[in-house]
């Protein structure tokens, strides 16, 4: 491990040298390809009902490797199409939550004093609300929710953990000598945040965001399972479940295969997050456990 110096290779190079990261990147690359090009490879359209009489609920076979659902739609096609929605929703939601959380944490940590104290109490409040319960409560009223609304909600309820990490790092950075001297030299707040504070928080934020993508994919699926996710005609992995779960004991494949896709994706993002932490900041391995983002409590659906 010590032979890999922090500046000896680019981050990408070091990630590629990391064995489990290679696997994770390969899986994610495959998913992205499926999300972009999937529809051209599949034999059917996602909503195509092949033969509602003869072909509904057929178990996996050579012809239909993942089987068909109760409307006789080909599940392989739907899982491939689902990758597009699931990945897009998760990525956008995490982008939103990371931005919100970083901003909140930066402001709170940099302002300090009473502002910080007040913002932290509010954050304590947010952190105490079980995310899933809150989402269900909102989605009960906002049902069916459009895709954009779902992204907004997932993003707006996902930033609490990030902001806490960012605030801690900002507080720590704020009192570093070179930051204080920059301030003494008359550098403005915005400039100090951008030049001095932001670079110090990039690593934990990237790691947390990577892990969050996996989390949100699972959460979105969970909400669909409960019947409050986004609906047809946009199949996400979660909405495939929703169609099959009622009779899942008989048609296990309707639940099994989209689940496998989710597990593979979440696993890939978790492994990548761990690897990123190793690669970006080896010191963190030795830091006290509570700030290690990868070991945060998960919030899977």
């Amino acid at each position: 491990m010590s032979s890999i110096g922090p500046s000896s290779r680019s981050i990408v190079g070091r990630l590629l040298a990391h064995r489990s990261a290679r696997w994770a990147l390969a899986v994610i690359a495959l998913l992205v390809v499926a999300a972009i090009a999937g529809p051209w490879f599949t034999a059917h359209a996602g909503h195509e009902q092949l033969d509602i009489v003869k072909l509904k609920n057929t178990p996996p076979s050579w012809r239909y490797p993942f089987g068909t659902d109760q409307y006789s739609r080909d599940l392989l096609t739907r899982v491939l199409l689902g990758a597009r929605i699931s990945l897009a929703v998760a990525t956008l939601a995490v982008l939103l939550s990371t931005t919100l959380g970083t901003a909140y944490g930066l402001i709170s940590g940099y302002a300090g004093g009473a502002v910080d104290a007040a913002m932290m109490r509010v954050l304590d409040g947010f952190l105490s609300i079980p995310r899933v319960l809150l989402l269900i409560a909102i989605l009960t009223l906002w049902n069916p929710v459009p895709l954009s609304g779902l992204i907004l909600l997932l993003g707006a309820t996902g930033w609490f953990g990030v902001s806490r990490i960012v605030r801690a790092q900002t507080l720590a950075t704020r009192h570093l000598e070179y930051v204080e001297s920059a301030r003494a030299l008359g550098a403005g707040t915005g400039r100090i945040l951008l030049r001095h504070v932001l670079p110090n928080i990039v690593t934990p934020v990237i790691v947390t965001a990577t892990l969050a993508v996996g989390n949100v994919i699972a959460l979105e699926a969970g909400l669909s399972y409960l019947g409050v996710g986004a609906r047809e005609p946009t199949p996400s992995w979660g909405s495939i479940f929703f169609d099959g779960v009622e009779f899942f004991a008989g048609n296990w494949w309707v639940v099994f295969f989209p689940g496998v896709a989710i597990v593979a994706t979440v696993l890939a993002f978790n492994v990548l997050g761990d690897a990123l932490r190793d690669v970006l900041d080896p010191r963190q391995l030795h830091r006290s456990a509570p700030v290690t983002p990868g070991t945060q409590p998960r919030e899977n659906g």
């Binding site: 996996g214 959460l219 699926a221 969970g222 399972y225 597990v263 978790n270 899977n300």
Partner: peptide
């Protein structure tokens, strides 16, 4: 750790 709760429970 990577399993969605409901899916693991269903399985």
């Amino acid at each position: 750790y990577s399993l969605p709760d409901f899916w693991a429970a269903l399985m």
